[in-house]
Simulated assay, not measured.
Amino acid sequence: MTRLAIVLLFDAVIVLFALLAAAAAGVVARINGATCPAAVMRAAAAFAAAITFIAALTAALAPLLL
């Protein structure tokens, strides 16, 4: 398996974890009494934070892996 494929698979798994984190943040916000639009905004913020983190991490590690 090439290094590029490993990086792409790593990113795909992280996107799945980001979606899971966003869903969890939305559910927790809803349980805490937030309205549906507020819960969606919190979920979107959690997803954006996770994707931003993984983009920075991939950019930092890509030269080492490629």
Results as ranks from 00 to 15, higher is better:
residue 14 I to L: 01
residue 64 L to I: 11
residue 13 V to R: 00
residue 24 A to C: 10
residue 45 A to Y: 02
residue 16 L to P: 07
residue 35 T to C: 10
residue 40 V to Q: 10
residue 55 A to Q: 10
residue 10 F to A: 11
residue 53 F to H: 00
residue 37 P to L: 01
residue 20 L to W: 08
residue 56 A to V: 15
residue 19 L to V: 05
residue 49 A to T: 03
residue 36 C to R: 15
residue 2 T to I: 05
residue 15 V to C: 03
residue 13 V to A: 01
residue 22 A to L: 05
residue 43 A to C: 10
residue 20 L to S: 00
residue 29 A to R: 04
residue 31 I to Y: 10
residue 24 A to Y: 09
residue 17 F to A: 07
residue 12 A to H: 01
residue 29 A to G: 06
residue 41 M to Q: 15
residue 46 A to D: 04
residue 51 I to M: 13
residue 19 L to G: 01
residue 56 A to W: 10
residue 32 N to I: 07
residue 66 L to K: 06
residue 14 I to P: 07
residue 9 L to V: 08
residue 23 A to F: 10
residue 51 I to E: 02
residue 38 A to G: 14
residue 11 D to E: 05
residue 36 C to V: 14
residue 24 A to V: 14
residue 24 A to D: 11
residue 41 M to V: 13
residue 64 L to Y: 14
residue 21 A to D: 02
residue 27 V to A: 14
residue 33 G to M: 14
residue 29 A to D: 05
residue 60 A to K: 06
residue 66 L to P: 03
residue 61 L to K: 03
residue 59 A to W: 13
residue 42 R to A: 14
residue 19 L to E: 08
residue 5 A to C: 05
residue 1 M to D: 11
residue 65 L to A: 07
residue 35 T to M: 11
residue 66 L to V: 14
residue 19 L to Y: 05
residue 39 A to H: 09
residue 64 L to A: 13
residue 31 I to V: 15
residue 31 I to C: 12
residue 6 I to H: 06
residue 55 A to M: 11
residue 56 A to R: 02
residue 43 A to S: 15
residue 24 A to I: 14
residue 52 T to G: 13
residue 53 F to S: 02
residue 62 A to D: 09
